[in-house]
Amino acid sequence: MIDRIQDGPVIEAQGLTRIHGRGCPDCVRLTGDVHGRNVCPACGSVVAVAEVSFRLWPGEILGVMGESGSGKSSVVRLLHLDDRPSAGTVRFRESHGRAHDLASIDEAEARRLRDTRFGMVHQNPHLGLNFGVSAGGNIAERLLCCGERRFHAIREAALGLLDRTEVPRARIDHQPGQFSGGMQQRLQIARALAPNPELLLLDEVTTGLDLSVQARILDLILSIQRDLGVAMVVVTHDLGVVRLLAGRTMVLRHGRVVESGLTDQILEDPQHPYTQQLVMSAL
């Protein structure tokens, strides 16, 4: 929802850097797209991402594109507080105005944010769903985290979320292992949406699915954006996905942002040699 832009960004990342390994003063300088590597030649540390800055506004979908190893999933892990940056700040602003620096937040507050303010959908449903409990149970877990204790309220909310994500109500007591791949992804989305989050992170959610199943999930994501206005980060290596979903796109390579802009500009007038190559090879 463009009108909510005045409210200020939901996420404001500044100089986000994550180095795996002991690190040295030259790690950032000696890696990145210019050098064509993300392993520091001086100390052998892996610079997963470095100096990534962006803003995400309420209701906006930001595409994060790049090949495997480019650092796109690292960005998502940092946003979801599954990992902490080596340097840089990430400001997260809740809708009622309270702001946090995700880089320095304590573990209890991190858990609260993950449980109640963020939603995450993984490429691999085994990471996003609990296969030991029913579809309804998967949603209930999230609602319980938000403090809901009334059985009927939870069941009603779960049914509503299944409707919302086009999972048949009759499947509420079935375990995710009995679902098709597309339905598992839709259940992951239902589970992610349960606490009514302010930030939804989607990591390669349509990768490996049949085209018709992909289409249905992409449509679902767009209708969620239209109806709920939740801000989303969509990580993908698929140009078609950003074309369809994202208003703006950031292109990563060797852990650096090589280009960012309006998605149609990235696709029709790419500036960076790598983006040009990426766009040309897709046509």
Binding site: G261, L262, D264, Q265, E268, D269, Q271
Partner: peptide
């Protein structure tokens, strides 16, 4: 037109 729409820079 595309520059005005910011599709081209």
């Amino acid at each position: 037109l595309k520059c005005i729409y910011r599709t081209y820079l």
